[in-house]
Amino acid sequence: MSEIQNGRGLSLVPKSDVKLGMKDFKSDQEVRWCPGCGDYAILAAVQSFVPELGLRRENMVFVSGIGCSSRFPYYMDTYGFHSIHGRAPAIATGLAASRPDLSVWVITGDGDSLSIGGNHLIHALRRNINLNILLFNNRIYGLTKGQYSPTSEVGKITKSTPMGSLDKPFNPISLAIGAEASFVARTIDSDRKHLHSVLREAAEHKGTSLVEIYQNCNIFNDGAFDQLKDPGQRDAITLRLEHGQPIASATKAVRRGADGGIEVVPRSEVSEEEILVHDVRRPDPSLAFALSRLDEPAFEHVPIGIFRSVDRPSYEELMTEQLDEAIGKGGPGDLDDLLLAGDTWRIG
């Protein structure tokens, strides 16, 4: 168990008796995303990472909504439920609440989770039910062939916005932190090693974990995250967040600003002591929120990694406790006793 999460996320999920490999998690279905789609990399990363968890395959469930990414469950040889637009967190909530012995994953996109399903997303996060939500963010509607999404930058020219989009996008990390999420992280489709480590932390976190995955749509929004992938620019933009480590790259660092907020300054201008040390377990979410704002308004400093991972009781744990408490006090329910409780009278 890593030191940054509570490690209880999988405590009730049965372990596999045999060692499983990547091939055990590949279903027999042909993968049908566009050639070059970022989803392939994420699928491969998930299929290669899940065996590490050592869980029984039959106790893993992938639930999705609608969108390109939502085809994901068909390709995993686990239990899967490809549901309807935006509703995956709701369906997964009922499943996870009634079956604490399952490792439940929600696969969603920026349109699915932040537009039509926005309400379910924020309520899943505040409830902290034991779910892992992987939000594939490609900043575009792909399946409906290229309309702007709730994470598209203002002024986006698309089929539905020929003169540019007007509405300010959501920052999924800021939104999740504002919605009382207990685990929030960001990673990128092209960095399998980082994806692995973040997914593992998410899986072992008890409660809802939200992982934003920057994902390239090479058909309708190609190159949206190229700055983070291009070796020439990557290091100048990315800020790796690592628990217990200074928040800094080779060229820049984050420190407290004079106005009480945080600021990014050239590394050469700060002493090591001044650099903020990342603490994912900080109970107050304000600093994590401030970090999530560093990429605003331009894509200049982009934190990648785990923003927040705090220990909080999960919903299904509390729900089970209430059931246990009720049964402990009054014993298991008896139908005849229930029907005859209260005022009754006998005839004949």
Partner: peptide
């Protein structure tokens, strides 16, 4: 009636109510 193992979930909206029931 939690003694019967009944789980009641007050959802965020009508859609989540039926969604959670179907998930269960």
């Amino acid at each position: 009636h939690k003694r019967f193992g009944i789980r009641t979930f007050q959802a965020e909206d009508e859609i989540a109510g039926v969604g959670a029931a179907l998930g269960a």
